[in-house]
Design a protein around this nucleic acid. Structure first.
Lengths: 205, 205
DNA sequence: GTAATAGTGTCTTTCAGACAGTATTCA
DNA sequence: TGAATACTGTCTGAAAGACACTATTAC
């Protein structure tokens, strides 16, 4: 059987795939390492509903499966292997975003896995996580905490520690400072309660 | 009506969108500027067929609508506005690739439009072209002619002219040379027939 | 010869890496 | 006071921008 294209042909003639979304939600627990939100050994996902945007399907799946609200997920890539899903012909659009750990709802069935030591997830979800991590790392090279994981105001040390967690490797302290300070807004306030000289508190520029 | 997810639920219960592909094919005519292949005021596209990969649908649409063969299109992004297409619920996956102008079939209904002066295309196709151009430009900063638009062997002048056409702006000659030579393989041969000192001929490293 | 093109030398600026130094706080 | 942390000064090396210079060809 052959399906032919024509502008005036009705769409009903074409068999259609189911369209799903899967989302890698990254976070950095305080003092911890970069981790991804997992629900029963895979990324939270769902099928899109009629009239729905992909991003709305992502938000719905995160709300229902992990109690996460208020993200702005970005598309990563489309998985289109017709044999990928045993249930049938499914096309899956991978998404990614990051969220502060304090906004994760602890009374839920999801859990965090560090991305550096990730076992095999169901489907091709490891690849999604890798892409999400690569995007987040690229963003964090260019700007201070672009995903707004830190609560304002913050010290340069807190920012440095966060960026090292995202990068997965040490970042030179003075180079980091010189690169970031011009993109930050100093508050004039100083940190309190810590050992050593109190640090300037900053907000994102 | 509400559609609920369940691993064991059959996929037949879900209304499904049609899934299309649209492709921005970029090229640089000899001595010309960066241009995109257009078919009747839009990018070539089609609906995917059952069992087909997105990239195969792209290749099929390019073959049937523009006589183009042998590309390896890359995904750019998914257009998912439910009201985008007047024919119904259509999700479109934008793709991009580049092709040497000499491989374009002139006996076809497609035509080239320079990307610098692009009128409004149908659908949201201008955005696809912009993304495709941005990706191509990023690739051409990092490597000599990664899309293999030039026939080998080529001189540094030819490479330089091509990279300027892709970038859409002048590129410093000596800096360009120093950046590219380590990534090229000198043939030991020299160009002939031109004014001035004959140039070394190179192949891609 | 001149015009045109190919290719090199080198100075300056910029910036990351590296390391050492000074400054200010807590215990 | 010493330990810990914040912040700055400065040297070095790599690379880009800029410009001038030499080299080899066609005419």
């Amino acid at each position: 059987m052959v399906y032919r294209d024509s502008f005036h042909k009705t769409l009903e003639d074409y068999p259609r795939p189911s369209v799903a979304v899967d989302t890698a939600v990254l976070t950095v627990p305080p003092g911890g390492e970069l981790a991804v939100v997992i629900v029963s050994n895979r990324l939270p996902g769902t099928f899109i509903h009629p009239g729905e945007r992909l991003s709305d399907a992502v938000l719905r799946s995160l709300r229902e499966k992990a109690g996460i609200e208020g993200l702005r997920p970005r598309q990563l890539l489309v998985f289109d292997d017709p044999d990928r899903d045993p249930r049938g012909w499914v096309i899956s659009v991978a998404h990614a975003d990051a969220i502060p750990t304090r906004r994760l709802n602890p009374n839920r069935s999801h859990y965090l896995l560090p991305v550096a030591r990730l076992d095999k997830l169901d489907y091709a979800h490891n690849e999604i996580v890798e892409l999400a991590v690569a995007e987040l790392r690229a963003d964090y090279v260019a700007a201070p905490d672009p995903a707004q994981l830190l609560e304002e105001p913050f010290t340069l040390r807190e920012l440095h520690t966060l960026h090292e967690a995202v990068a997965g490797e040490p970042l030179q302290r003075d180079t980091f400072r010189r690169a970031m300070v011009p993109m930050l807004a100093a508050t004039g306030e100083r940190s309190t309660g810590s050992m050593g000289k109190p640090a300037e508190l900053y907000r994102r520029g």
